[in-house]
Design a protein around this nucleic acid. Structure first.
Lengths: 344, 344
DNA sequence: CTGTTAGCGCGTTCAG
DNA sequence: CTGAACGCGCTAACAG
């Protein structure tokens, strides 16, 4: 900086003023400074800046799995909005592990990030440590149990409710679901406590089925563990049932892939013999054979909005009594070739 | 820190020593300091540390497109290796735009990242500005024109050469390619200057075809622009040829998707009437109908290795005469259901 | 072993 | 508008 000042024949104060667009600097000096910066290939030292200004213009983002296309799309949204507002993002892959997540958060904190965007694998730790000290943090996709604060979420319940109603409207009565993490026994006890996307998706299904007076036999309620292998296994079981479903609702993309693999392998006609409705939409959904009918979340928008809210929190701290805003995004049903009326 | 020192009744130097496990501190003092830190909920300020130490333990990574599954896999590799070695990563999506990339690099530099991992969309700027001043930077996937330095790359030429030879071995003689960015006229002039993955993949194809004495008619050399729509368009054109190919090699995943869409739409049997060989392998490749035969890059390993080399450069600067190491990763042909011998 | 002190590079004052 | 001086929180060198 001193070099720049010397080369432009001004004081460091002036250089600082032009770098930050502050104060009034005579146009001629301004251009001289800019030229000096250019010719010296000078980049302001954000570290020193941060130390003085007490903010870094870096935010931390932790996702359960960067390889999941849904999250990469959210990340893109965050990058876009961040770029626009002058924030960089340190990305952390928690690998669905609460312990790793905790460590990431701690590292992020020591780097003095201005705020955190998180889809928590761990429904407790994140909230305790951060929100309690009023650190700017916004949740997306998932939210901690008993949560209060800022979040941007998809209305999973409504989206799945409508999707399953679409299946019912087609004439299906035997509709199975491939999900994860919820016991069959919980289904009987009325509405699920819809605290996470998991439960909300199942509850959308349950509600639609119940309203239509349709039964949910135990074998129709499959646990696929959110993995491709799990979806495959569930698909196989569903297909060899004495009374197989005519339609299946799969709660995430990996399981849908597994399900399709099972269907192809068993040479079952889709949608002829079995209709498939998947959750989450991607490039390949429409290119599949058959093209997949899916529930599409607004993943890019989720990232953009989350970043928007976070920056707002960072730049103008919350009033003491503020409750936090939760933004709900609608999901869209994209009807394609994997669903049709039942033939039987 | 001063507060901690005061509370523990020692000097700041001593506090610093225990925080960094440096020097020998009398055990009694040590515990006193630790207790003070705990009761004050003190976290060392990495910013101040970075300012003094002149390194941040943050590296920057810029990719052309975070939503591309290949890159997300590389990112995972980087995250894994980075976590292991104590580095965080600021991720930048250049969105295939050289101007954005330039700006990202400048921002990363301002943040004083210790090094940069980059798959450059822009074959000149990156090298000029950074490698010239011996800033630690390692390229992955793509490398700038006339490049010298560190990189980890896939052996695209060999991989594609072998893949196309496999097709030829199956008995195919009419083999088309969907690629991008290279003129048909360049094919005639012997080996392509294989400076990027694009050209290398085409050259692998050209070499295999030429060695087998197989012709490459102009309509068999399609330009798909690396997009789904492009692949779809090329697929359509290929299928309605008077003399259609019996096999198609698609140079990237999006174009393969488009091609498959065209094939499904036109009700052409795959692999019966046409075999498809794609580049890049993903979860959905094996779940496709038919399961796709692909060339699989070691994307996760690419990320791990790139980070490994970078950290090595950061922590022990290059000898003046060092040429830089380029690591070449082999790709693997995964034979599945989309290829078979030609029926005609 | 421990205390003291001089910067790291910058933004901000404040008196010119 | 300028230039000098101070401090952000920390580490390293040196003196005790």
């Amino acid at each position: 900086m001193i070099d720049v000042a010397r080369l432009a024949d001004v004081s460091v104060g002036t250089v600082s003023a032009v770098v930050n667009d502050k104060g009034a600097v005579r146009p001629r000096l301004r251009t001289r400074v800019l030229e000096a910066m250019e010719s010296l290939d000078y980049h302001p030292n954000q570290i020193a800046r941060s130390l003085k200004l007490r903010h870094t213009h870096i935010i931390g983002m932790v996702v359960p799995d960067v390889a999941n296309p849904f999250f990469t799309s959210v990340i893109r949204g965050v990058e876009i909005e961040g770029g626009r507002r002058g924030y960089s993002v340190i990305l952390c892959d928690a690998n669905n592990d609460a312990e790793i997540e905790r460590r990431q958060l701690s590292i992020l904190f020591s780097h003095r990030v201005d705020g955190v965007l998180i889809s928590s694998s761990n429904y407790h730790a994140a909230e305790d440590r951060l929100t309690r000290r009023r650190f700017p943090i916004v949740f997306f996709d998932r939210t901690p149990f008993g949560f209060r604060g800022d979040a941007v979420l998809t209305d999973n319940l409504m989206a799945c409710y409508r999707a399953v109603r679409y299946l019912i409207g087609l004439g299906h009565r035997r509709i199975a679901i491939i999900s994860a993490g919820v016991d069959y026994s919980m289904l009987a006890g009325g509405p699920l406590p819809a605290t996470g996307p998991r439960a909300a998706r199942i509850e959308g299904y349950r509600k639609a089925m119940q309203e239509a007076g349709l039964p949910i036999p135990a074998p129709y309620f499959q646990q696929g563990d959110f993995t491709l292998a799990g979806g495959y296994k569930c698909g196989l079981e569903l297909l060899q049932l004495a009374d197989p479903p005519t339609a299946v609702f799969s709660c995430n993309n990996l399981m849908t892939l597994g399900l399709m693999r099972a269907i192809t392998e068993r040479q079952v006609a889709c949608p002829g013999q079995i209709s498939v409705l998947g959750f989450d939409d991607f490039d390949w959904s429409a290119s599949f054979n058959p093209p997949l009918t899916t529930v599409a979340q607004q993943s890019l928008e989720m990232g953009r909005k989350a970043m928007e809210v976070l920056v707002q929190r960072v730049e103008s701290p919350v009033p003491e009594d503020e409750q936090g805003q939760v933004i709900t995004l609608e999901a869209e049903l994209r009807v394609r070739g994997s669903t049709c009326p039942p033939c039987s």
